[in-house]
Design a protein around this nucleic acid. Structure first.
Lengths: 232, 232
DNA sequence: TCAAAAGTGTTCTCCCTACACCCATGG
DNA sequence: CCATGGGTGTAGGGAGAACACTTTTGA
């Protein structure tokens, strides 16, 4: 490499810093994660989370939002910092420290991949080979998501505006990997008092119509502050 | 500055990376945090968390543990990553990204400050002026600690080996800033089944002796995995 | 004998849990 | 007419919340 290209010099060694964005979506059946196939070495052909170097004038969260926008077209999803990964040799090229974020998106709002021919949604329980330490990052992200749904309301970030109780329950079951009793789940949600029952209905199956709900966002955010414990 | 000193060169700008360690302790009355008085600019005379540059061959957690050891002499405290701070101008000298950790220590095990003439324990609700964005970091750390104690058992990390129910309750009250009913608190702890009542007693006040307890560490760790919700 | 601290018990209520039944539709 | 899916109701147990009494000691 030409030495003139390396023009940013420091007295002490500085690691490179990137942001990665673990983007979760829910398709009504399964919890999915957005991955990009790597076209270059190292780990060519493996899959990775959207990510890249942090720009000099942006915060890590801005970097993560930039990645999210580039891959999904979304500007305003729920995003939160997950963890920072700093094992010295996690990237074979040079020392790279990655600030990982979790984003929760409404999968139906995601712009179909224009620059994303090499991007795809995968069920979180069945992902292709991952690059770097992204397997560990995914495990951590799932643990965090389970912790969140366990103690704070979840659904607004991942479900469409209007949804059925069944969809909400399926989301909970997909995230936690357990089965809930239909009736007790409905009662729990009613008691939490964060749902608004709409006048509309849909026919999710040809068998019977189902009521539509939306979140009462004020009470939802209140409960988000307070926290609770869901356990069936 | 002599240019020869700046010998670490990169193609793209790299930020400096530091680790800071928010060290909490409990003296039986108040929740306290360990701070160091800065002797150099910027923020000379302000107080800051122990911290420093990440060494080339250590992980961020190893860096945080090194800081913890240097300031307290402790090797094996509870430590967890809090958050990574990346606002571009948070350090006026150059771009510095800080990976912040929370450490919980038994304050009575801390080696009195030998290299720590400029270090001190402060009540978390009454700290001196803090350097950089350490005020924000402290707020985040307290929020995290409250979240932890809200959903997971706490005490083993902060209390001495043997303690009274009163001390445990005072810890909870100090962290959460609320008052609990003595009797209901005792019952809750009994139901959680993480305490072992010892045969010993102490005279915490000249009024009456009190039973000593220790944690049943297996059940404590079990509950740590499961989580619960404390609410009085 | 009184104040202060620590130990223990009761009652009420509400929530969690495990259940069963009804209704509407399409085949 | 029956299988499927969705909506609702009930009884029992257990945990949270409010609350009071006793014991022991030093002043």
């Amino acid at each position: 490499m030409n030495m003139e290209e390396k023009k940013y010099c420091y007295k002490y060694p500085h690691p490179a810093v990137t942001t990665d964005c673990v983007i979760f979506g829910f398709d009504g059946e399964e919890l999915k994660v957005l991955l990009i196939e790597r076209g270059i070495t190292p780990y060519k052909g493996h899959w990775a989370f959207p990510g890249g170097f942090l720009n000099p004038n942006e915060t890590a969260e801005e970097g993560a939002r930039r990645e999210l926008r580039e891959e999904t077209g979304l500007d305003s999803a729920h995003i939160e910092q997950l963890h920072t990964y700093s094992t010295p040799d996690r990237d074979p090229r040079e020392r790279v420290i990655t600030i990982a974020y979790i984003a929760l998106v409404r999968i139906q709002d995601v712009r179909g991949g224009d620059d994303a021919a090499d991007a795809g949604w995968f069920p979180v329980e069945n992902v292709p080979p991952l690059a770097f330490d992204h397997g560990e990052i995914l495990r951590d992200a799932l643990r965090r998501l389970r912790e969140r749904i366990y103690f704070y309301p979840l659904g607004y970030e991942l479900l469409p505006e209007k949804f059925t109780l069944k969809e909400l329950q399926t989301l909970y079951e997909a995230v936690l990997g357990v089965q809930f009793d239909r009736r007790n789940f409905a009662k729990k949600m009613q008691r939490l008092d964060i749902l608004t029952q709409l006048d509309e209905t849909v026919w999710p199956t040809p068998k019977r119509e189902a009521k539509l709900y939306s979140f009462n966002i004020e009470k939802y955010n209140e409960l988000k502050k307070r926290g609770f414990k869901i356990e069936f």
